[in-house]
Amino acid sequence: MNSVVKGLRGFATYMGSLMGEDAYRKYLEHFEATGNSGPAMTEREFWRDRMDRQDTNPQGRCC
């Protein structure tokens, strides 16, 4: 039973990464690693910016 739960959690994590669920965390890691000056975007600002960029520059995506 434990291996089934581990498998399902792994699958959920994988699907979340495909859907971009971890995009904000990756943004923060990149922001800190590159030594930007000033504050990072809030999570709300990040998602709004991401959606605005996708709307103005559509690329191949399912939806």
Score class of each variant (00 low, 15 high):
Pro58Trp: 08
Gln54Pro: 00
Asn57Phe: 05
Cys62Ala: 05
Asp22Glu: 08
Met51Val: 10
Trp47Ser: 04
Leu8Ser: 13
Gly20Glu: 07
Phe31Gly: 02
Asp55Glu: 07
Glu45Trp: 08
His30Lys: 11
Tyr24Arg: 03
Pro39Trp: 01
Met51Glu: 12
Asp52His: 04
Pro58Ser: 06
Gly38Lys: 01
Lys26Arg: 11
Gly7Arg: 10
Gly16Pro: 03
Glu21Trp: 01
Glu43Leu: 03
Arg9His: 13
Thr42Cys: 06
Ser3Gly: 00
Thr34Val: 14
Phe31Tyr: 13
Arg25Leu: 13
Ala40Thr: 02
Glu29Asp: 12
Glu43Pro: 00
Gly20Thr: 03
Ala23Ile: 03
Thr34Tyr: 03
Gly16Ser: 12
Met15Trp: 05
Arg61Gly: 03
Thr56Gly: 08
Ser17Asp: 14
Gly20Tyr: 04
Gly35Gln: 01
Gly20Val: 02
Gly10Glu: 15
Asn36Arg: 06
Leu8Gln: 12
Gly60Lys: 04
Met1Cys: 02
Cys62Ser: 03
Glu43His: 00
Tyr27Ile: 09
Glu29Ala: 11
Asn2Pro: 01
Arg25Gln: 10
Leu28Met: 14
Tyr14Asp: 14
Arg9Ala: 14
Gly35Ala: 00
Thr42Ala: 04
Tyr14Met: 15
Thr42Ser: 14
Leu28Asp: 07
Arg48Ile: 02
Trp47Leu: 08
Val4Phe: 00
Gly16Asn: 13
Gly7Asn: 14
Glu21Arg: 02
Arg48Phe: 02
Trp47Thr: 05
Gln54Leu: 05
Ala40Cys: 05
Gly10Leu: 15
Ala33Thr: 11
Ser37Ala: 11
Glu29Met: 08
Ala33Lys: 11
Asn2Met: 09
Gly20Gln: 01
Ala40Ser: 09
Gln59Arg: 09
Ser17Gly: 09
Ala33Ile: 06
Cys63Pro: 07
Lys6Arg: 00
Pro58Leu: 08
Thr13Ile: 15
Val4Thr: 04
Gly10His: 15
Lys26Leu: 12
Leu28Asn: 06
Lys6Ala: 00
Arg9Gly: 11
Arg53Pro: 01
Met15Leu: 14
His30Asn: 15
Arg61Asp: 06
Glu32Met: 06
Ser17Thr: 13
Gly7Pro: 01
Trp47Asp: 03
Ser17His: 11
Tyr24Ala: 06
Gln59Asp: 07
Thr13Ser: 15
Gly60Met: 09
Glu45Ser: 12
Ser37Pro: 00
Arg48Lys: 03
Thr34Gln: 08
Glu43Phe: 00
Glu45Val: 12
Met15Asn: 10
Arg53Tyr: 04
Tyr14Trp: 15
Glu43Cys: 04
Arg9Lys: 14
Thr34Asp: 05
Gly60Glu: 09
Leu8Trp: 09
Gly16His: 08
Thr13Cys: 14
Gly7Tyr: 12
Gly38Ser: 02
Asn36Ile: 00
Val5Glu: 00
Tyr24Leu: 03
Thr42Val: 05
Ala23Met: 06
Tyr14Ile: 14
Val5Ala: 01
Gly38Asn: 03
Tyr24Phe: 07
Asn57Cys: 07
Glu29Phe: 09
Met19Ala: 10
Arg25Ala: 13
Asn57Gly: 01
Asn2Gly: 07
Val5Thr: 06
Trp47Val: 10
Gly7Cys: 11
Tyr24Asp: 01
Cys62Lys: 06
Thr56Cys: 06
Arg9Asp: 13
Asn36Tyr: 02
Gly38His: 02
